[in-house]
Write a protein that binds this DNA or RNA. Structure first.
Lengths: 186, 186
DNA sequence: AATGTCATGTAAGGTGTTACATGATTTG
DNA sequence: CAAATCATGTAACACCTTACATGACATT
């Protein structure tokens, strides 16, 4: 049940409404860590409130409810954060494609890897730009650390993709450009 | 619907039974890309067979059915592989904890980051060892590329975690060791 | 006044996990 | 022959997405 802990964690940083949290997922957490829609967020916030882990800190216009963490909520969040699991949920559609690269022929695999390289380059640049805007403070308290992680991740992706393309080209050349899809010269 | 493409992709490498595929998820794909249990795999294989994307290539003892890809299955797999989505599914319980680091105090955050460092070190070493066993050929055709990706990923995680610990310690020292949980000096 | 954004909710259906269930074959 | 592993399946429940639904407030 990572959704509830994601919500608790965001509220630990600062009080927010379900609407705010949905936007935070879209803008920040959702690309790399976890995502949820408002249809999942609102019921979960109500359950958390029923369980006494969060509380309505403020009511605003249009029925807006700003939630804050309770002591119990913070305790539960910390417990979960420090309970580092042997194997946790990891799902990544992009990484999945890498694992299955063998299904493509040389040209196809190359084009896929080039998109990985391009994506890595773009995203790394975006994060670098974001960080250089000194007046802008991060969305979450330790956003700086996370942004650095993201930047390093995408730089790694770029470097790796370039390396992988080289490998592919070498194998292709060695096989005389006749290598059928699925065959590998380990 | 990434599960079906994960299955198609694994079968593109070599024919396998539902049992084999479940083991492949556990041993390889599941840690980084995608995971599924046998209770999800068997029904999906039957649906894929009904749809003509896979076919029973061989029947063995204990009702074992070895599936292979059909032409239609390979076509669908390639279509999906090259249809690089703007935003795909990414879920990562470990990365989520990083985003929420602000909920912890200095000592707690430090201990979490140390575990990230340790995990990065161990996993990178494992992959390095695996690759140095020259006689051992990879599980999937392009397993070599994926292993390299994994190794670079975990090395990055290790380096980043060490850097993040330094940052944390510096902030802690600057705040005179009195920094309450949740406050950051951006 | 119309349009856009803010704000919350429910319902239906698809995806994924845990638990239950069964039996064949292999190994010690 | 006992235990482990191989091999497939179903059922109940939890989680997540898409679509439907409503209304308040802000902007033009």
């Amino acid at each position: 049940m990572s959704l509830r802990h994601a919500l608790l964690g965001m509220l630990a940083d600062h009080p927010a409404s379900g609407y705010d949290l949905a936007q935070l997922f879209d803008a920040s957490l959702g690309q790399h860590a976890w995502h949820a829609r408002h249809s999942q967020i609102y019921p979960e916030l109500n359950r958390l409130a029923d369980g006494g882990l969060v509380t309505v800190a403020e009511e605003g216009p249009r029925g807006r409810r700003t939630y804050g963490l309770t002591e119990a909520g913070l305790t539960e969040l910390r417990r979960w954060m420090l309970d580092f699991p042997e194997s946790g949920v990891v799902r990544n559609e992009y990484a999945l494609r890498l694992f299955l690269l063998g299904a493509l022929n040389h040209a196809e695999a190359r084009s896929l890897l080039e998109r990985y390289a391009q994506q890595g380059e773009e995203q790394a640049r975006q994060l670098r730009d974001l960080r250089s805007e000194r007046d802008q403070q991060p969305v979450l308290a330790f956003g700086r650390l996370v942004a650095e992680f993201g930047q390093r991740y995408f730089e790694m992706q770029l470097d790796w993709a370039r390396w992988a393309i080289e490998q592919l080209d070498q194998e292709h050349a060695a096989a005389g450009g006749k290598q059928p899809p699925g065959s590998s010269s380990g």
